[in-house]
Amino acid sequence: MGKIWLICLLCVLAACNQAPAHEVISLSALQPLPKAAEQTIVPLRVSVAAVISPKGTAQSYQALLDYLSAKLERPVELVQRRTYAETNALVEAGYVDVAFVCTSAYLDGAARFGMELLAAPQVNGKTVYHSVLLVPAKSTAQSMADLRGKRFAFTDPMSNTGRVYPTYLVKQLGSTPQEFFSEVFYTYNHDDAIRAVAEQVADGAAVDSLVYEFALAREPELAKRVRVIHRSPPFGIPPVVVNPEARPQLKAILRDLLYGMADDPEGQKALAALGIERFVPISDEAYSSVRRLFQEMHLLSP
C-alpha cells in the first residue's frame, strides 16, 4: 500500500516539472554565426537624414521606396543613421546611391566632397522652407529674447533650422547658446523636438517648417500645445543628393524617375505620403542665402 502512495506522490510531483517534448537546445555549445550571404542582386540604397524619427522616416518613405523599386525593377534598401554627419559619410563613401539630406548637410557635403544635387521637393509651389521657433502653448515668450535662461532643445548639431538658425538668433542678441540658455540638449530629429516642447520638457525649440506642418497635419492636437513665435526668412529646401562620382546613367534614370512621379498616379501616392507635390530640378544658387548664414556663423570650411 505504502509503495502505491509513494508512486502516486512522485507522479504528481513529476507532473509539475514535466519538460516539453522538443529537441533539446544546448545554450553552451556555441558556433560562429554564418556570414551574410553575398547579395547577388545589389539593392539601390537610399539614405534619409534623420529629420524625423527613424520609425517615422521608414513609414513616410516606404511608398517612395516601393515606387522606386517597382520602376527600377530592383530592390531598394532604406539606410538610416542617427546624425546628418553619418548620412553624409555614407554618401561620401558611395555606400548609398541616393540620399535625402538636410540643407545644412548639403552645404557641408558640397563643401567637403562636392555632394551633387539631384532634385528638390516642391511644397506649396515653392522649394523653400523656414525655421520656426516653437514654445509651449502656455508660455508667455514672444521672441527669442524671452527664452533667456530657459531650457532649449536643438535637433541635430548640423541642422540648419534646428540649431544653426536659433544659434544665429542668439548671436544677434549678443550671446552664445551656452550662456543664453540655462540648458541645451539634442533630440537628433525634429519630431522629438516638437514633442519635447509640447510636453514642456523644453521651453523652446526651432524646427523645420515642413516637418512642423506635416506633424500638425498628422496630429492636429499639437496645435493646442505649441505656439510659433518666430519664422525665419526662406531657405533652400532640403534636397535629394547623390555622390558626385555616381554613374551618370544612374543619376539620369533617378532624375527622370523623380521628376516624372507627379505625372504617375502611383508616384502621386508616394509623393502624398511624404507631403510634397513633386520633385523639381534645383540649382546650387537656391542655397546661397543659407550658405551665407553658415559662413557668417563660421560653420563651413571656406
Binding site: E23, S26, L30, Q31, P32
Partner: peptide
Amino acid sequence: FGEGFPVGLQAA
C-alpha cells in the same frame, strides 16, 4: 551569447 551562437535556437 558572446562568441558564437547556439545551434538551432534561431529556428526554434
